[in-house]
Simulated scan of single mutants.
Amino acid sequence: MKQPCVYILASRPYGTLYIGVTSDLIARLYQHRTNAVRGFTARYAVHHLVRFEMCETMEQAILREKQLKRWHRQWKINLIEADNPQWVDLAVGLGSPPIEPQLRRDGC
């Protein structure tokens, strides 16, 4: 699935959100889900893909990412729930294995 896209990950329904952009969603999901890159998503166990939008160009994807990051949290939740009201992990439908709930690295 090599195409520019913007995506939203969540730690759990209504949990911590992360918005990112990539040209290879499958590879990027693998990195997040295996904590291959240390950072925010690894620290807070933000691994569930709850929304993604494919874009024509990387420039469009970056602009959309910046737009979404400026949104209020409730607007982001409304966007997720418009197409994914059950907060299903969409990565499973893209071929990723389901992941078990985990505690954050800080123990919470």
Rank of each mutant, 00 (worst) to 15 (best):
Q74H: 10
W71I: 02
K66G: 09
C55Y: 01
R38N: 11
Q67E: 14
E56S: 14
T34V: 13
M54Q: 14
H48E: 11
W75V: 10
E65C: 07
K66L: 07
H48A: 05
F40I: 11
I80T: 05
R73E: 09
R33W: 02
H47P: 02
K76G: 00
N78T: 11
I80P: 04
Y44M: 05
W75A: 14
H32R: 05
A82V: 01
A61H: 03
C55M: 10
W71K: 14
L79W: 08
Y44A: 00
V46Q: 02
A36C: 05
Q60E: 15
V37Q: 15
R33F: 03
R64V: 08
W87S: 03
R43T: 08
K69A: 06
M58T: 05
F52W: 13
F40L: 09
R70D: 14
L68Y: 05
H32S: 01
V46A: 04
H72M: 08
Q67P: 00
Q60A: 12
D83K: 08
H48F: 04
V50A: 03
A61K: 00
K66R: 15
M58C: 05
N78R: 15
P85A: 10
H32N: 06
R43F: 12
C55R: 10
R33V: 04
W71T: 12
P85W: 03
G39C: 06
N78Q: 13
H72Q: 15
A45I: 03
N35F: 06
G39F: 05
L79R: 05
C55A: 12
A42V: 02
E56A: 15
W75N: 11
V46W: 01
A82N: 13
N35T: 08
R33Q: 15
V50Y: 02
R51E: 14
R43Y: 10
T34A: 08
V46P: 00
Q86K: 13
E53L: 05
W87T: 07
A42H: 10
T57Y: 04
E59A: 14
R70L: 15
L79F: 12
V46F: 01
K69G: 04
F52K: 00
T34R: 13
I77V: 15
E65P: 01
F40Y: 15
P85H: 04
A61W: 01
I80W: 03
E56I: 07
E65D: 06
E56V: 09
L79V: 07
H72V: 06
R73A: 10
N84W: 04
R73C: 09
N84V: 04
W71G: 02
M58F: 13
W87G: 02
M58E: 06
R43C: 04
E81Q: 15
Q86V: 06
L49G: 00
P85S: 09
P85R: 07
N35V: 02
D83H: 12
I77C: 03
E59R: 13
H48I: 00
